[in-house]
């Protein structure tokens, strides 16, 4: 079985569980299937769906978090994305924004390009985040732990990383319906 032994939850299932706990927080969602799945599960104006600029989701979220210290900012990220923009873990760890929660859906593959393996099966990304200075760091496998830890992080000062191991299943989700400039405007108005 791949990825990690015992991982049965899909990314969409994990994401749905988290979206149930969120209301009007800004959520930056990385490129590829994660944005499409989030859009299908719950299309909120507070969602910033990325296409392209892989690896930049936490940097965008950091810009929002630093500019809006009163708002808790969430990132939905993937293992390939984190590996590509790994330097941003250091920037976040050094700046220590309290209002920053970084969720990583780790399926150990580049899902959008045909499931080529990443290296997150050997590099534990939450440990990198911990070493970089994230304050709260958890790695979870099942839904109960995911919900428990995410609720806990919503109550705590960050920066926090919640890495959830998920399987490779991809939800049947079409492309995001909104044009990118409309996503920008809608997001800006929603988080004002």
């Amino acid at each position: 079985m791949r990825p990690e032994q015992g991982t049965m939850q899909s990314r969409a299932q994990a994401m749905a569980a988290l979206l149930e706990l969120l209301t009007d927080q800004p959520v930056i969602i990385c490129n590829g299937f994660p944005s499409r799945e989030a859009h299908k599960l719950a299309d909120r104006p507070t969602h910033f769906y990325m296409i392209g600029s892989m690896g930049n989701a936490p940097a965008i979220a950091l810009g929002v978090a630093l500019s809006k210290p009163g708002k808790q900012v969430i990132v939905f990220d993937g293992d390939g994305n984190v590996l590509m923009g790994m330097g941003t873990l250091a920037t976040v760890g050094a700046l220590k924004p309290k209002n920053f929660i970084h969720v990583v859906f780790d399926n150990e593959v580049y899902g959008s390009t045909g499931n080529q393996p990443t290296i997150s099966n050997v590099v534990q990304l939450e440990k990198v985040a911990r070493a970089a200075g994230y304050v709260n760091v958890e790695r979870v496998l099942d839904r109960d732990d995911l919900v428990y830890e995410f609720k806990d992080m919503l109550k705590k000062d960050g920066p926090s990383m919640l890495l959830v191991k998920v399987n490779e299943f991809v939800e049947d989700a079409g492309r995001v319906a909104h044009e990118p400039p409309a996503i920008t405007t809608r997001f800006m108005n929603a988080i004002e």
């Binding site: 930056i28 910033f48 600029s53 690896g55 930049n56 940097a59 965008i60 979220a61 950091l62 810009g63 929002v64 978090a65 630093l66 500019s67 809006k68 923009g85 330097g87 941003t88 250091a90 920037t91 700046l95 920008t184 997001f187 800006m188 988080i191 004002e192």
Partner: peptide, 24 residues
């Protein structure tokens, strides 16, 4: 000044700041 570690990160951070009402 908020230091970044790579220029693409800086550009993305500035984009986030713009969407949060700043002129970056």
């Amino acid at each position: 000044y908020t230091p970044a570690v790579r220029e693409d990160e800086a550009v993305a951070m500035a984009a986030g700041a713009y969407m949060a009402g700043k002129v970056p």
